[in-house]
Write a protein that binds this DNA or RNA. Structure first.
Length: 490
RNA sequence: GGCUCCAUGGUCAAGCGGUUAAGACGUCGCCCUCUCAAGGCGAAAUCAGGGGUUCGAUUCCCCUUGGAGCUGCCA
């Protein structure tokens, strides 16, 4: 067993973001590929943002995504608890250790005072940064005030000179002047740590070897390394991942109505297609291959295929992946998955789902579009006369009327109302009158569906509709065309 | 504003000093076809701009421009 340990550390604030899912996926792949462990840790130190039920949702989404973790709140492990709020008492002693060594200090400034100073600075167009005001309080005095119960926070004491830096697996050397770094709060007034502190403590305690997370932490990571140094700990290897964008300037966010992993699943995207697509959003394999299952990704994933620039979440490509995955689905699976979607439009209509599924299998991009595609079977949509005119099929309303009348007679005469029998009969009709196949099939299909395109041709639709409904719709078509003709004459 | 990072077609991207600058999605055209898809074939479309370095820059360096992230007692 290798010592590689990666983690995914989401905050329980709602559904799984696609960007988060991708980060989790890469962290998972990285660990699994090297025989390491993948850990789930819940970062809920901000009680105000906590959304009820969100923690369970994370477990569920990870499970649905197939990203099984070796350690986590619900599966246990040797380094628990894996929920930060359950570890709350463990952070303060570490912070005090830093206070002792001078790498941190208590601060008694209130939020209001801070805000006032911040506002004043911004009003003057100045850059706000905490002025280390409380660093200069006498140590004994500070201790007395802390013990007296006066509210305080603990701040990181960042050196005023020098540089802080780290090596990123993707971005290389990143460094910042300490002089421009702010003295972050490590322990909040409520006694809970901030992310800035908790992530360092927990990653160390949980023996995380590789911290894989979004670029939003890239610029604060030098500060974290200062903390590792102050503790005398070995920092982990970092790898930051670019953001997933909605378009060139906006990142994907739930607030703007962009879909979450959960949403995509509900819309009828299949899990493997989503994972496959997400994997390729910011990473490319060495060759041209683009279909990968999760285990295959574990095999071939490599960090130098990673991209440094943000990628736009492109739904077209996802749809394509999805349709490919659907086509590859076993037919019985397809039928089973499609059935509830068929029901939405056709419940109780007595349609042969099996035959419908055969017709739809290769035409389904996303399951949510299925009801709309088949609803014409339940009810004939209103349509315009020009549907009967089709240049390529060489048809027009007049010819359509003739064809429909003859087709109705033939259909009515069929004892055995099968696709083959109907097709044979209609082809015969075309041949007898020296019409092209399309000149017969087009008007029939239009009369039966009222649509410019359908999943299946005229005879297939006729079969699904059944003899009675077929004859009825043919009659409606004839009636419609006759009315049109008499209107034109008058 | 400051700091950090990024920059190849519409999108995802390969490329890692010398290439006709891959491939995929999407778009368009043709074929196939009882419609539409699917499938087959083909096409259009990219190195942000300017300086260097070099015999030679998409590739290395700098600047500009554009974009992103951070700048919270949020993560």
């Amino acid at each position: 067993m290798s010592d590689i340990r990666t983690r995914f550390a989401p905050s329980p604030t709602g559904y799984m973001h696609l960007g988060g899912l991708r980060t989790a996926l890469y962290a998972y792949l990285f660990a699994k590929q090297r025989g390491g462990k993948f850990i789930l840790r819940i970062e809920d130190t901000d009680q105000e943002r906590e959304v009820p039920g969100a923690v369970e949702l994370i477990y569920e989404d990870m499970h649905k995504a197939g990203l099984d973790y070796d350690e986590g709140p619900d599966v246990g492990g040797d380094y628990g608890p894996y929920i930060q709020s359950r570890r709350k008492d463990l952070y303060l002693p570490y912070a005090m250790q830093l206070v002792e060594s001078g790498a941190a200090y208590p601060c008694f400034c209130t939020k209001e005072e801070l805000q006032a100073r911040r506002d004043k600075a911004t009003a003057k167009g100045e850059q706000w940064k905490y002025d280390k005001h409380c660093l200069h309080i006498d140590k004994a005095e500070a201790k007395r005030r802390m013990e007296s119960g006066e509210p305080y926070v603990i701040r990181q004491n960042i050196p005023e000179t020098g540089v802080a830096s780290f090596e990123d697996l993707l971005y290389g050397h990143v460094e910042t002047e300490c002089a421009i770094l702010d003295d972050n709060v490590l322990i909040k007034q409520d006694g809970l740590p901030t992310y800035n502190f908790a992530n360092v403590i927990d990653d160390h305690l949980m023996k995380i070897s590789h911290v894989i997370r979004g670029t939003e932490y890239l610029s604060s990571t030098p500060k974290y390394n200062l903390l590792y140094e102050a503790f005398g700990w070995q920092p982990p290897t970092y790898m930051h991942l670019p953001v997933v964008m909605k378009d060139a300037t906006r990142k994907l966010s739930k607030r703007h109505g962009d879909p979450t992993f959960e949403d995509l699943l509900e819309q009828g995207y299949v899990r493997d297609a989503i994972i496959n697509f997400i994997a390729l959003l910011g990473w490319a394999p060495k060759d041209d291959r683009e279909f990968f299952t999760l285990p295959e990704l574990v095999e071939v994933f490599d960090t130098d295929g990673l991209s440094k620039s943000p990628a736009i979440f492109n739904t077209d490509k996802l749809r394509w992946f999805n349709s490919e995955y659907i086509k590859k689905m076993d037919f019985e699976d397809y039928l089973k998955t499609a059935t509830p979607w068929f029901d939405k439009a056709l419940q109780g209509k007595g349609i042969d789902y099996r035959r419908l599924a055969e017709l739809m299998h290769g035409r389904t991009e996303v399951f949510s579009q299925v009801p709309e595609m088949v609803s014409f079977l339940a009810e004939l949509p209103d349509y315009q006369i020009d549907l009967y005119s089709h240049k390529k099929m060489k048809t027009d309303p007049a010819l359509s009327l003739t064809v429909l009348k003859l087709a109705l007679t033939r259909a009515a005469a069929l004892q055995d109302f099968t696709e083959d029998a109907l097709k044979e009969s209609l082809m015969e009709l075309a041949a007898e009158n020296e019409w092209k196949t399309g000149q017969v099939m087009w008007p029939v299909r239009v009369a039966l569906s009222g649509l410019p395109s359908t999943p299946g041709g005229a005879t297939e639709i006729a079969y699904l509709l059944g003899k009675d409904e077929t004859l009825q719709r043919l009659a409606i078509g004839i009636n419609f065309l006759e009315q049109f003709q008499s209107m034109r004459q008058s």
